[in-house]
């Protein structure tokens, strides 16, 4: 039993350690809008995107390009991992407000313009 616990701690520890080392970018949701609407992340790198919802209502982040779908409850935050991706533009939108909540993840080779840090 102790061995199993130790193994689980090791697995979760390694997962957490690898997640902490990743570049991060934060996107806020205010009045059913993504702020910023365009984020730039480095190509061929895994990136942690944190959505912080300041609205009272939930939002469901959806992206056919990134193949991601995540519910962010009101006054809450949610994390998704994307990449490694080739350079290009990847659209995402809020399922509950598709007319206003739209955004783009721009994946580029140029590191200087990156929002992820």
């Amino acid at each position: 039993m102790i061995r199993i616990n130790a193994l689980l701690c090791l697995i979760f520890g390694l997962t957490a350690a690898s997640a902490w080392a990743l570049p991060e970018t934060v996107i806020e949701i205010r009045n059913h809008l993504f702020i910023p609407q365009r984020v730039t992340i480095p190509a061929n790198t895994k990136v942690k995107i944190i959505f912080v919802n300041h609205d009272d209502t939930p939002e469901e982040i959806d992206s056919f390009d990134l193949n991601r779908e995540k519910v962010v409850l009101g006054h809450s935050r949610a994390t998704i991992f994307v990449g490694p991706l080739p350079p290009g533009e990847y659209q995402f939108f809020g399922e509950y407000h598709p007319n206003t909540a739209v955004g783009i993840v721009e994946v580029t080779d140029i590191v200087e313009g990156s929002n992820a840090d």
Binding site: T15, S18, A19, F64, N67, E69, I80, F81, G83
Partner: peptide, 26 residues
């Protein structure tokens, strides 16, 4: 598969093919 990729429990996989020109997911 996508859920596991999204929470970083498995590495992100490259796409095998793209048929969105004929029938797009959306």
């Amino acid at each position: 598969a996508a859920l596991l990729e999204q929470i970083d429990y498995v590495p992100n996989q490259s796409r095998l093919w793209d048929t969105s020109r004929w029938v797009a997911d959306d």
